[in-house]
Design a protein around this nucleic acid. Structure first.
Length: 534
DNA sequence: CTAGGGTTAG
């Protein structure tokens, strides 16, 4: 019994997932509707708006039509513009033109999105020409998408020109301009546009907040969020991802916790990205327990590699190497595939825990899975080998790696040479490093102390003088933490904090304590060895 | 069932 047309259309409107869609498609095929233009259009439209996972299916559907209409071309272009490979959208557009099908006013916003994601200005310019040629230059949707396209191609002047040419810009036009300036790093201009716009919505606020986060102005990002709350605009998941990132970069645990409360109080659904931001925030703000709790809130079957990376990396940076490795086992058990970042987190766990054999195991399985180690993976390997005294193996890694060793690779090797008394190699590495990274004071100091260890006092002294003469000053990285709502910022060796004396005396107390503890451990190991032998 | 489909923030 063949399915009747009205039943088919109601089936299509109930379609919820790509799985439903495939079942309906099967029904359609056996019922002989597979060449009905209306039916195929509905199917394609659904799968094209289903997200990037159904792109292959969309293309199969599209390919089954002998001479596709402008609607079908636009829809498949839309699917590809959101896919992993937006360049296919451009190819399909070219095919459309060759087939003699005229693009309509809805083809261009999708194409503009593809060009924006490709960040290709030549393609974008060609697209703009076609927009004009086809008479869509004053379509507001097309104009807005071109503003965004030019900004994504980092041609902010053309974006502004587009925007200024819009007779009656709407909220989307203004938002695209705020975001455009923010993405191009001009936060002053972004703020000016934001202040000038007649009305704002959650997108306007989120674009500005994220601009400040991406520009490293985390405090300003939180200040804008506060203003947004006063203004009465309710944040959504997108806003909160940026805001949590600001908290995490500031080490602002109390603020981060308040944001977590905001999510609950406002009934915001914890989607996977939001949960990942929470895990990351708690881990980077020092509360690994809350990071683990946020992670465990997510049902295992909904997890992806990113949230596993956040929790595995979080445990690693807290020195809880064994648990980090255990979670990796758990991740594999439920079938989530690791990526290069996962392995980087694991290698970092090995570095912190001195787990040389595990590091080798992970390094080899990374390659066995067909992933090429990045320079950061090599840096971790050199670090873990170097710290544990395997300086020759570390050196072998550096010699055999297929790319130029970065400063962090050589830096790890230099440290290894310093701590394990390989003055000869250390001198070589130190000299290479100074050439590679002449503005990093630590390299000169490292080399100088290698000379000092070899009792080459003159060389040690002249290296320090050399550094002074060059006026080396490393751009300082800083760390920050929050106590009772007040942020404290620290640069290595600075004495700027008003409690510097207390801080340093506590540090030396801790150091002494650690030395004592490690003596105890050494002693215990010694006793154990004695026990085994006796 | 003969139109349908659009632009901006992670």
């Amino acid at each position: 019994m063949l399915i009747q047309f009205p039943a088919l259309t109601s089936l299509l409107s109930q379609c919820k997932s790509i799985k439903d869609l495939k079942q309906i498609h099967a029904q359609i095929t056996i019922s002989g509707y597979s060449s009905n233009n209306y039916v195929i259009s509905k199917l394609l439209l659904f799968s094209a708006t289903c997200g990037p996972r159904s792109t292959d299916y969309s293309f199969k559907l599209f390919s089954s039509v002998p001479s596709p209409s402008a609607f079908l071309f636009s829809t498949i272009i839309r699917a590809f513009s959101n896919s992993k490979n937006p360049s296919h959208a451009v190819s399909l557009y070219n095919r459309m033109l060759r087939a003699g099908v005229s693009p309509d006013h809805l083809t261009f916003p999708f194409l503009a999105k593809a060009c924006a994601r490709l960040a290709s200005l030549p393609l974008g310019n060609a697209l703009h020409c076609d927009v004009v040629k086809n008479g869509f230059a004053s379509d507001l949707f097309v104009q807005n998408s071109l503003v965004h396209m030019y900004a994504s191609c980092r041609d902010i002047a053309s974006a502004r020109e587009m925007f200024d040419g819009i007779l009656a810009p709407n909220l989307v036009s203004w938002n695209a301009m705020v975001d455009g300036y923010a993405k191009c790093g001009d936060l002053v201009a972004a703020r000016d546009v934001f202040d000038a716009m007649p009305v704002r919505d959650v997108v306007s606020w989120s674009a500005l907040i994220d601009g400040y986060v991406k520009g490293g102005e985390f405090g300003e990002a939180l200040a804008v969020f506060a203003r947004m709350c006063v203004d009465g605009t309710k944040a959504n998941a997108v806003t909160m991802v940026s805001v949590l990132c600001a908290c995490s970069r500031l080490g602002a645990l109390d603020k981060g916790r308040r944001m977590h409360c905001y999510l609950k109080d406002n009934g915001l659904h914890l989607n996977l990205q939001l949960s990942t931001s929470l895990v990351d925030m708690y881990a980077k703000c020092g509360s690994i327990a809350e990071a683990l709790a946020a992670f465990r809130e997510v049902p295992a079957e909904e997890t992806d590699v990113l949230i596993w990376n956040a929790v595995i990396g979080g445990l690693a940076m807290h020195g809880r190497s064994k648990e980090s490795l255990a979670l990796f086992e758990e991740m594999q058990a439920i079938g989530v595939q690791p990526d290069e970042i996962t392995y980087l987190c694991l290698l970092s766990a090995c570095t912190h825990g001195g787990l040389v054999e595990d590091a080798w195991r992970f390094f080899n399985s990374l390659k066995a899975r067909g992933m090429a180690p990045h320079v950061e993976h090599y840096a971790c390997m050199v670090d873990v080998l170097g710290r544990s005294g395997h300086v020759e193996e570390a050196y072998e890694i550096v010699r055999s790696m297929p790319m130029q060793p970065s400063a962090s690779v050589l830096g790890a090797l230099l440290t290894a040479c310093q701590t394990h008394g390989r003055g000869h190699l250390g001198e070589l590495v130190g000299r290479m490093l100074i050439e590679l990274d002449p503005n990093h004071d630590g390299r000169y100091i490292g080399l100088s102390s290698i000379y000092a260890a070899a009792k080459r006092w003159d060389d040690a002294k002249s290296m320090r003088e050399f550094m002074e003469r060059r006026g080396v000053r490393k751009t300082p990285g800083y760390s920050a933490l929050e106590v009772d709502g007040n942020l404290h910022r620290f640069i290595a060796h600075d004495k700027l904090h008003h409690q510097t004396t207390e801080i340093y005396s506590m540090l030396s107390l801790l150091l002494n304590q650690m030395k004592l503890e490690s003596d105890v451990i050494d002693n215990e190991q010694f006793m154990q060895k004695m026990g085994e032998n006796g």
